[in-house]
Every structure is written in C-alpha cells, then in structure tokens.
C-alpha cells in the first residue's frame, strides 16, 4: 500500500508548481492551468485523507464537489478571457493595464 505521506508530498509539489505558474506565466490560459494544478493538489489531499474517514466519506464527497466547481470556474474564466481577447488582441495579463488613475 502506498503510504499517506507520498500523496501529501505530491499534493504539495502540485500546489507549488501551480502557484509558480500563476506567478510567472505571461498567458492567462497558462495561469488558469496553474490554478487548476492548485485545485487538483487540494483534491488529491481530500481523497488521500478521505481514505481514513471511512464513516462519513467526507473527503471523497468534497473532492467530487471541488471537481465540479473547478470546471464551472474554468468555464467562466475562459469566457472572460475570450472577451478580453476581443478588446485587447492579447491575453498577457501584464499587458492588460488600462485601468489606472
């Protein structure tokens, strides 16, 4: 059996990779992929911990809901990115800075 710590290490790595992508990538869709990494790190944690919560199965439940919410969030974000592309002809967040005083 794979011990719990292995799952947690992979989760922590995924979370860090995701955060790194969010902070460095110059493309809104790549940032979204980074966010997806972070969410999936949390989902992996939930499923791994949920194995030890046999009575309630709360972890697995939470993972299912989180997957659905992540999909909904990505759908909204992609629609917004499409709108931004229409106006700016780029999706580099660092170049989109019309709003200032």
């Amino acid at each position: 059996m794979i011990p719990l710590s292995h799952f947690l290490i992979i989760g922590a790595c995924l979370f860090s990779i995701g955060l790194y992508a969010v902070l460095t990538k110059k493309n809104a869709i790549q940032v979204l992929i980074g966010i997806e990494f972070m969410i999936n790190a949390a989902i992996l944690n939930f499923v791994a911990f949920g194995k030890y919560d046999k009575i309630n199965g709360g972890g697995q439940m939470f993972a299912l809901f989180a997957i659905v919410l992540a999909a909904a969030g990505v759908a909204v974000a992609l629609a917004i990115i499409l709108n931004v592309y229409k106006h700016f002809k780029t999706i580099d967040p660092s170049k989109i800075d019309n709003l200032r005083n």
């Binding site: 995701g18 969010v22 809104a28 940032v31 979204l32 966010i35 972070m38 969410i39 949390a42 969030g73 909204v76 974000a77 917004i80 990115i81 709108n83 931004v84 229409k86 106006h87 700016f88 967040p93 989109i96 800075d97 019309n98 709003l99």
Partner: peptide, 16 residues
C-alpha cells in the same frame, strides 16, 4: 473586460 479578467484570475487563485 480587463476588470473581469483581473477579478476572475485573482479570485480563482484565492479560492484555490
């Protein structure tokens, strides 16, 4: 559209 992009990206990171 810029405001919505900033809001959705920051918001998704915060909730992740």
């Amino acid at each position: 559209s810029e405001a919505s992009l900033k809001y959705v990206l920051f918001g998704s990171v915060a909730s992740a």
